[in-house]
Amino acid sequence: MNRVAQGQMHLWIAQRVTAMVLALAVTVHLVTIILAVRGGLTAAEILGRLRGDALWLGFYAVFALCAGLHGAIGLRNIAGETLGWRGRGFDLAWLGIGLATAGFGIRAAWGLYAA
């Protein structure tokens, strides 16, 4: 397979796999929110739950990575189809945007873990 088509297929696969992870992660996230706010929501409570908890850090790191990549690949497709932004340069830019977005999310999760 030529490398360009293979790369495009890998992006497609990445988007589908991240969608599967996101389906689970969003459910866990929403259920946690609904349960957590029943007694009122405070910063102290959030920190109490997340500070120093490696499991939550891992969960939100995976969540943020998947969300960043999934969103960027989707935007890449929309930009290609509607604006004609296609090619290796744009692909690399979208990958960078996706990883940067994921990086912001992971940094926030780390911030709560290490707070």
């Binding site: 397979m1 030529n2 360009v4 088509a5 293979q6 790369g7 495009q8 297929m9 497609w12 497709n77 290609g80 296609r86």
Partner: peptide, 12 residues
């Protein structure tokens, strides 16, 4: 399968 993969193929 190689010919139908990628943005010009089934993945679009």
């Amino acid at each position: 399968m190689e010919a139908v993969a990628g943005d010009a193929g089934c993945h679009s």
